[in-house]
Amino acid sequence: MACGLVAGLATPAGAGEKPPAPTTVRVWTEGTTAYVTFRDNTADESGFWVAVFEKDNPNNEAGKVRKLYPGSPGTGREVTRSLPGVKPGVAYCGAAQARVPATDSASGLPTHEFSEWSKNVCSAATDPADPAGAPTNASLGTFNGEFAPTVGTNRTYWLPYFSSGGDAKGAVIDVTTDGSLSVRKPPDSTIFSGFECKMNAPAADGKVRGYRCTGGTLKSTEKKELPVFAHVDKAGQGVIRATLRVPGDTNPGDNSSVHIVMAK
């Protein structure tokens, strides 16, 4: 990571090939707290270092915030972690680094291997007194819901969505499922930020595997959740994917979310 942010976190001596780095998805601030969303690309990590620094003053050591968090179950999930202690209204860049248990080749003692830092992603500077006047920056968060649902049951998963900049108008959210999951019904129209939601056409097996919501308005700094009413059709892996499109979005890199389940 640029500007010495990773100083003191070098890979331990004797470690082998580095584990894969996380993928930074989104960085944003709310008041004095920064948030970093990243995709977990390792299956057996013991933790993640997450860090931010000031975009326009990267050498300011006092402006850097770093914290070690526990690992995330599985791999491929999007994870959001918070870092309190940033300056309101200032643009920050952030990234994450995976820490994986290892054995030192020379001493045989337990140690850790560290991935490279993920690619920096930066937030936009906003006027803390007027967040609604900020550039549009709509985003999707990490799905909430059961990881190991039972076959033959109904489950509801929740997809967070929000705008950390100005109001995001004309939003479109597409949700699809595959594997062990299908969709029972769309969210009720007009209840969720004015979205009109309609089911996709049935697949070849007769199951409906998604819906589209159009015409939504994401109010500045307002956080809401959209439901995915799923049915667990069979055992095995199931995937829910969501994408968000908003005209004029300044950071479309954080407009997707994936949730993996293992039905039993």
Rank of each mutant, 00 (worst) to 15 (best):
C3S: 08
C3D: 06
C3N: 07
G4Q: 10
G4C: 08
L5I: 14
V6K: 11
A7G: 04
G8I: 03
L9I: 07
A10W: 08
T11N: 08
T11L: 10
P12A: 11
A13Q: 06
G14C: 03
A15S: 11
G16H: 05
G16D: 10
G16L: 11
K18A: 10
P19R: 04
P20S: 11
A21G: 03
P22S: 00
P22I: 14
T23P: 00
T23V: 15
T24P: 06
R26N: 07
R26V: 12
V27N: 03
W28G: 03
W28R: 10
W28K: 08
T29W: 00
T29R: 05
T32Y: 03
T32I: 09
Y35I: 14
Y35K: 13
Y35S: 11
Y35W: 12
T37Q: 13
R39C: 03
R39T: 14
D40L: 11
D40M: 10
N41P: 12
A43F: 06
A43R: 13
D44A: 09
D44Y: 07
S46D: 10
S46W: 01
G47A: 06
F48C: 10
W49V: 15
W49P: 13
W49M: 14
V50Q: 03
V52A: 03
F53M: 15
K55F: 00
K55C: 03
K55D: 06
P58S: 00
N60E: 13
N60A: 10
E61A: 09
A62T: 15
A62F: 13
A62I: 15
K64M: 14
K64W: 12
V65P: 04
V65I: 15
R66P: 02
R66L: 15
K67R: 14
K67F: 07
P70N: 07
S72H: 07
S72M: 12
P73L: 02
P73S: 00
P73H: 01
T75P: 00
G76E: 06
R77A: 09
R77M: 10
E78G: 01
V79A: 02
V79P: 07
V79G: 01
V79L: 08
T80H: 00
T80V: 11
R81F: 01
L83F: 00
V86W: 01
V86H: 01
K87H: 04
P88E: 02
P88A: 02
G89M: 03
A91I: 14
A91F: 08
G94L: 01
G94C: 05
A95C: 10
A95L: 12
A95Y: 00
A96E: 05
A96M: 13
A96Q: 02
A98Q: 04
A98S: 12
R99A: 08
R99C: 04
T103G: 01
T103I: 15
D104M: 10
D104A: 04
D104Y: 03
S105M: 13
S105E: 06
A106M: 13
A106C: 12
A106Y: 06
S107I: 15
G108Y: 02
T111L: 05
E113M: 14
E113A: 09
E113N: 09
F114T: 14
E116I: 12
W117A: 14
N120A: 02
